[in-house]
Design a protein around this nucleic acid. Sequence first.
RNA 1: GGAGAGGUGGCAGAGUGGUCGAAUGCGCUCGCUUGGAAAGCGUGUAAGGGCUAAUACCCUUCGAGGGUUCGAAUCCCUCCCUCUCCGCCA
Length: 428
Amino acid sequence: MLDSKLLRNSLDLVEDAFKKRGFEVDLTVLQKLEETRKALQSDTEKMQASLNEISKEIGKLKATKKNTSVKEKEASGLTKDIKKKSSKLDSILEDLNSFSLGLPNIPDPDVPVGSSEEDNLEIRTWGSIPEFAFQPKDHLEIGQLIGGIDMEAGSRITGSRFSVLKSDLAGLHRSLTQFMLDLHTKEHGYEELYVPYIVNSDSLIGTGQLPKFEKDLFKIEGDENYYLTSTAEIPVTNMLRDQIIDSKELPIKWVSHTPCFRSEAGSYGKDTKGLMRVHQFEKVELVQVVEGGNSEAVLEELTSHAEAVMQALEIPYRVVSLCTGELGFSAAKTYDIEAWIPSQANYREISSCSNFKDFQSRRMHARWKNIDKNTNELVHTLNGSGLAVGRTLLAIIELNQLEDGSIKVPEALRNYFSKDKISLTESE
RNA sequence: GGAGAGGUGGCAGAGUGGUCGAAUGCGCUCGCUUGGAAAGCGUGUAAGGGCUAAUACCCUUCGAGGGUUCGAAUCCCUCCCUCUCCGCCA
């Protein structure tokens, strides 16, 4: 959510930012609502103040056993008027709030302006694109050769875009998770959290998935507004909803491994094969909560933590800065880390690291106590995948394949996985 | 699932219709004291919003929502959460 003062006083700045995003909205609606709000609120508060005054007088009169019927009649009328006016005010405030909840964040000034993937700005690349002496296979073909990926079973058990991993690939998948968690907790100073995978609507509003993107989520039947989490960002960041944190606690660095459930509405026909785009995948997520003021530098740091996983696993990648049109709803700036995928001869997203500034914290009411100024200020929140486990497995399978379809296990996983090679022999 | 207890400020804990946004204690701030510290004394210390250049001032909030009343932390209704005991259970 944007600062209401910004919306009131610098509307042109907001309009300009939205234009860059390709986000269209009629902000005059906002201005009208705001005018009405102001008049109603000031009236209501004045009336309430005089009612409070009269009520106090009645209290004093009663204490001295004096007659109060005239005052009571006056107050009674006032009470009725206030009820009428404040219910109007309430509905205006609600309109104002729901309108504001639908407005996206303002991009940072250094975010490249553009409308599509092509406008993303490549920041750096790491590693070299591998040359194969043979025609490389895609991960699904390899997975099936070694009996490690079973898409038919996934669709039988549940439906399309669900998968089953077996034997060595299931183990490698688990090892990857373990490796990532250890790296972030031991080397990068993150505290590990185990969190609910089902979240309520308040949490989803807090991080920005609701009210606009409900179709991307799996909703759970029942009286509660419960949803399967689509990213650990939701439960982890909402740890701080309605909290005021002591400055000594900051920065907070949390890492959490969770499954992620996504409906992938609107992605029909995209990445239909294999593990690239599925309804359920595992992710190790990094979240940082900081005072604000230097969150730009923290985004660089957090991104480097995700990159460290890529480098340790020797996955060639590039980092791109998402252009204004590709930026997520809540983000002020996002770096995508894209792994080289041989079968597609292209870089594909494996991690997304974002700075949300105070956009999420304003929705969540997550603040920190500034002792020097004696004020409560909104924290800045950031997060990034470190990494998406399924896609990492996919990249490793493809990048480390040998001609016969067996897979070399990356050096970094030797302490986590018992073999240095996964071969076809066991499958048939 | 059954029975009971309870949700008040950073924490503990009073408050059962009227100067209660809330006693008291702890914690924390600043000051006095001290060579320095502790103790002691004094002082300040909830959040959100409105209006302000900024104060001042005003409004709202005692789990959430609704109701009664001139007036609700306090009375009534609904819901949520926490704890204890019993049952069931990974």
